[in-house]
Design a protein around this nucleic acid. Structure first.
Length: 459
RNA sequence: UCCCCAGUAGCUCAGUUGGCAGAGCGAGUGGCUGUUAACCACUAAGUCCGCGGUUCAAGUCCGUGCUGGGGAGCCA
């Protein structure tokens, strides 16, 4: 008999004569002559209650199937006479795949997130993490759906790169050199390495994506990204996923319109497709979550320039640990103040001083600021970072000279400005940070299956 | 990398002035009940994070290392 998923059975509008489910025991309550088994198969947050009667041929074994055990159950789905569930299954046959021994680490009680991180291979079997990873999957699909509907092309940019693009943070080196040889020579001889030059894991697919935007029009990348920064915070991991749309014939305003539409689309999608899982987070993780999601969907995001933000921060008279001054980058406390206390909603900050932004951002007419944009959201801080790109060859080369960047390494990037250059723009959105935003989960290690952080690569 | 906090039973934690190691939950056993984080009784369960020191005596005080958490920097 074909296996049915529990989410489909619970959605049935009538009882069913014969069903077969396969899943794991979440909890078991024994009576004298029968047992209640709550079975979860991962298809949804809810369990289905199974009644196992003592007349089952293997009843003696069934009562030993404690929390964590895996079973296949055939029986009749009837309306439940008990309170708390619509249907239950009266088992006619129970096959036991595996009985989890009594040292199974997950108990039918609340565990701390810290403990569950030490058993990351088992934590998706809990309500909270099951819900988080179903939502993660759903958002990933919604991203593709959003871009497919808009006629964007999905682009897979290289994970191994040759240039230290952007100079953004520490990179992971990729090498096939024999450590013994390196020791013998006393140095890494990259000419003898696999690629004949230094290679690293990517920190961004942007430069590649620009080349394809200037060919296919609108593209996006969505994949893993690596940073070797020694960051120990609840918002950083060494390997994470990033969404990077890149659009030809697009300016900074269009870029912000796009980012706002994206965030609203994704939040709506989660609300419409993950209601049960989302409820768990509103109830047990962050009671203010529904209000925040309302704000994300129903309010127009604020748009202010960096200069204006500096004025607001100075006028606030609030005591900040770090100085607020034009020309300095905003600190976490400043970003949080703007998004959480002053505007109380997402805010795009634009037109940052060129001195604190990378070379590829488009120079504004004032020659002081660039067409950069960051989207700050409550609780998370920076969710999106992007810009209109500098499309004017002379200006771009001038900026690279100012910043002492080796133009020859970027020859292909510069050629895109030589041949048919057009205004274009894009941004990067941290996928895990978005999941944190919509679930209320406060540690990034809890929204990625097996987190990689400094000193930690178990699993 | 810096600052702060924590580490005691499988989990969550208490442990007084330095004086015999504790609770709840979980697990095991028995009982009871169409149960709902079931209930009742009993039982087992410890390198008090590691190393060193002070002391008649250290879970407790001191030093040091490791691990985890919170915050900061950097960023998505």
């Amino acid at each position: 008999m074909k296996r049915a998923k529990i989410d489909a059975l619970l959605a049935s509008d009538m009882p069913l004569d014969q069903v077969c489910i396969k899943g794991w025991v979440r909890t078991k309550r024994d009576s004298k002559t029968f047992s209640f088994l709550e079975i979860n198969d991962g298809s949804c947050l809810a369990n289905i209650q199974v009644i196992a009667n003592e007349d089952l041929e293997n009843y003696d074994d069934v009562v030993k199937a404690t929390t964590g055990s895996s079973l296949s159950i055939r029986g009749k789905m009837i309306e439940s006479p008990g309170k708390g569930q619509k249907y239950e299954i009266q088992a006619s046959h129970i096959k036991i795949y595996n009985v989890a021994p009594d040292n199974y680490p997950l108990q039918k009680k609340r565990h701390s997130d810290e403990f569950l991180r030490t058993i990351a291979h088992l934590r998706p079997r809990t309500n909270k993490f099951g819900a988080a990873f179903r939502i993660r999957s759903e958002i990933a699909w919604a991203i593709h759906q959003f871009y497919h509907e808009k006629g964007f092309r999905y682009l897979n940019t290289p994970l191994i790169t040759g240039s230290d693009c952007e100079g953004a943070g520490e990179m992971f080196r990729v090498t096939a050199l024999d450590p013994a040889l390196v020791q013998k020579l006393g140095k890494m001889d990259f000419e003898q390495d696999f690629f004949g030059q230094e290679a690293n894991l990517t920190v961004s697919g942007q430069l590649s994506a620009e080349m394809f935007a200037l060919a296919l029009g609108d593209v996006y990348t969505f994949g893993p990204t690596f940073r070797a920064e020694n960051s120990n915070t609840s918002r950083h991991v060494a390997e994470f996923w990033m969404l990077e749309p890149e659009m030809a014939f697009c300016d900074l305003e269009d870029n912000m319109d796009h980012g706002e539409e994206l965030v609203k689309y994704l939040v709506n999608h989660v609300r419409n497709n993950c209601e049960q899982d989302l409820n768990l987070f509103s109830k047990f993780v962050d009671k203010s979550l529904p209000g925040l999601l309302d704000t994300l969907v129903n309010t127009t995001f604020e748009r202010v320039t960096y200069s204006k933000a500096i004025e607001i921060l100075k006028a606030s008279k609030k005591h900040f640990e770090y100085e607020v001054s034009y020309g300095l980058d905003l600190q976490s406390e400043h970003e949080r103040f703007l998004a959480e206390e002053y505007f109380k909603k997402p805010v795009f900050l634009t037109d940052y001083p060129k001195t604190i932004k990378p070379f590829y951002m488009r120079m504004n007419d004032d020659n002081e600021t660039v067409a950069a944009v960051d989207l700050l959201v409550p609780r998370i801080g920076e969710l999106i970072g992007g810009s209109q790109r500098e499309e004017r060859l002379e200006v771009l080369e001038g900026r690279m000279d100012e910043m002492d960047l080796p133009k020859e390494d970027y020859w292909w990037y510069l050629e895109s400005r030589r041949y048919g250059s057009v205004p274009h723009a894009g941004f990067g959105m941290g996928f895990e940070r978005f999941i944190m935003l919509v679930t209320g989960i406060t540690n990034i290690r809890d929204v990625i299956p097996f987190p990689r952080t400094p000193g930690s690569i178990e699993f």
